[in-house]
Simulated assay, not measured.
Amino acid sequence: MRITQGTFSYLPDLSDAQITKQLQYAIDKGWAVGIEVTDDPHPRNTYWEMFGLPMFDLRDAAGILLEIHNSRKTFPDHYIRVTAFDSTHQVESVVLSFIVNRPKEEPGFRLVRIEEPGRTLRYSIESYAVVARPEGARY
């Protein structure tokens, strides 16, 4: 199963040249770029760990790409995504995010069905990785 989160999630993985073009686009727009890492890509897990500080004043995409390479070396079996934050008034939000690294094996999710009183059914999704292994040892 391929995790689909953020922009470009249904496309094949981006090459470094394509990532550089997206980074330069974000820089040209004046957005702050950050790199985030997780081993739990659950769709409701929106708070990934930051890899370093957000890069507010960088004007060259090569510097951010270097940090992406460093994050890949540090966390080769984690999900790594790039986020671009627009700080302009009335936006102040992440406006672009895409995954730049994935583990070799993506175990995916399962649908959990819970039957409750009154013939009520509740559904949730659960990561196979989270169920099988503790944090830090999921991939």
Rank of each mutant, 00 (worst) to 15 (best):
R110S: 03
K73E: 14
F75L: 07
F85N: 03
D86R: 10
N70L: 12
Y123V: 00
V82N: 03
V100W: 06
R119N: 06
D77S: 14
R133D: 00
V100G: 02
L58Q: 13
A62N: 15
V82P: 01
N70T: 10
G118S: 08
P54C: 14
A129R: 08
V95G: 00
P54W: 14
L58D: 14
T88C: 02
V100R: 03
V94D: 03
R81M: 07
S71A: 15
L96D: 02
R119T: 03
F75S: 06
R59I: 09
A129T: 03
F56M: 08
P117W: 01
F109V: 04
I114N: 09
G108S: 11
H69Q: 14
L66Q: 14
E105K: 14
Y123S: 00
S87A: 10
D60Q: 15
F98N: 00
P103A: 05
K104T: 08
F109R: 15
V91S: 04
F98H: 01
T83V: 14
D86Y: 11
Q90R: 10
R133I: 01
K104A: 07
H78W: 10
E105T: 14
T83D: 02
E126Y: 10
Y128K: 13
R110W: 03
G108P: 05
E67T: 11
E106V: 12
F56P: 06
D86I: 07
F56C: 04
V130L: 04
A129L: 06
R102Y: 08
I114W: 07
I114L: 10
I99C: 09
R59K: 15
R81S: 02
I64W: 14
R59G: 11
L121F: 10
T120P: 00
R72P: 07
H69A: 13
Y79M: 03
K73C: 07
P134N: 05
R122D: 00
L111D: 03
H89I: 04
E67H: 13
A61P: 14
Y128M: 02
P117R: 08
M55Y: 13
S87D: 13
F56T: 09
G63H: 15
P103N: 04
I80C: 08
P134H: 10
T83L: 08
F98P: 01
I99V: 13
F85L: 04
R72C: 11
S97A: 06
L111A: 07
V82Y: 05
V130Q: 04
D77L: 12
S97L: 09
M55E: 14
F85A: 01
E115V: 12
P76L: 10
E92H: 10
H69M: 10
I64E: 12
N70R: 15
V94F: 08
S71G: 11
P54K: 08
R122I: 01
T83K: 13
N101E: 06
D86Q: 09
L121M: 04
L65H: 12
L121S: 02
L111R: 15
D77F: 12
Y128H: 08
A62T: 15
S124M: 06
S93Y: 06
Q90H: 10
T120V: 12
S71L: 09
R122Q: 04
H78L: 02
V131Y: 08
F98M: 01
E92K: 12
E126Q: 12
Y128D: 00
P54Y: 15
F85I: 01
E105G: 00
E115N: 11
D77G: 11
R110T: 05
F85W: 12
K73W: 04
G118P: 03
Y79K: 02
N101C: 05
P54T: 11
V112N: 10
I99L: 05
I68H: 10
S124V: 02
A129N: 02
